[in-house]
Amino acid sequence: MTVLRTSSSPHIHGPNSVPKLMFTVLACLLPALLAHGWFFGAGIAVHLTLACATALGCEALMLSLRDKSRMLFLTDGSALVSATLLCFAIPPLAPWWLTVIGVSFAIVVAKHLYGGLGHNPFNPAMVGYVLLLISFPREMTAWLTPATHSALHYDFGATLDLIFNAGITGVDAVTMASPLDHLRMELSRTHSMVEILNNGELYGRLGGTGWEWVNAMALLGGLLLLWRKIIHWHIPVAMLLALLISAGFFHLLDPGRYSDPMLHLFSGATMLGAFFIATDPVSAATTNRGRLYYGAGIGIITYIIRTWGGYPDGVAFAVLLMNMAAPTLDHFTQPRAFGHGERD
């Protein structure tokens, strides 16, 4: 007698799992991370270690407080992705507590108070970054000039010393604003765009020196993500197009006051935001049409905040603002169910 085995659907299982997804994302982040470390020195490695340790620690604490399986969630890699993304936004010689505060706020408040992975309405890394930027604007905008142009090279020991012992005063002498920040300040002093771009060694061919490479590498990693089908094309394409069109429009209107669209695409967190942050499957919109609006919204708000706002980069705020709008977008862009009429 043959036994007929029956099981309930689904009968075909996908090979993907959360850990596999998260570690693919981390692998795709690697080129950008290496470029970031190359240009900004050993401080990046120190902060990355610190961030990952804090993230895992907070995750373990919250999981044990909430009586959840610790092994399952600690090894899924989602906390590591948040920590790594946040690391890109922290200046290399920033004091150690900056990373600890940012990461623990991201993991505890933005992720676990909402129920952990899969429930958070806001992108945890961006919540952590925005908290730091609002609370410690001085520490968060003290960027190092990229190593290739800086006369000051720090070895590992000196970096450690600066991060753990020196207050902000010790670091002040060698730091300066990031390219986008610098551009904004100079423009408000009514310098014309050409003057600024020719003046500093802060600017490279496309964007800020160093930053353009980090962005190019993030673009490469993003294309890998697309190829691996981890993310959909809708959000990055809509975001980059919206940024390109709005920057291009104002640049054509007055090239002296509004910067080149390329500078916007290859500076700050643009590429990282487009491929790695905005595409967070939990906090982004989930319908295809919603994704297009969501991405375009991020692009436009990023441009508005960068150009007229008071903060150096708009990507983080834009992502949080569109995170807020994502449930509404989903609600109003529900696709038509098969077999039902055009309306209702």
């Binding site: 407080l65 909430r66 408040v109 933005a110 676990h112 108070l113 909402y114 129920g115 952990g116 429930h119 309405p121 806001f122 919540v127 925005v130 908290l131 609002i134 708000i301 508005i304 905040i305 007229w308 706002g309 008071g310 903060y311 708009g314 983080a316 705020f317 834009a318 949080l320 603002l321 995170n323 807020m324």
Partner: peptide, 30 residues
């Protein structure tokens, strides 16, 4: 969402409102 018991209802709503307020600070300076 699987919100911890102590934070269900108005508590998590107020935290959300706080985070929204943080996001809106991005517009300051416009």
């Amino acid at each position: 969402a699987d919100v911890p018991l102590a934070f269900r209802g108005p508590a998590i709503a107020l935290i959300t409102a706080g985070l929204m307020s943080m996001a809106f600070m991005g517009f300051s300076g416009l």
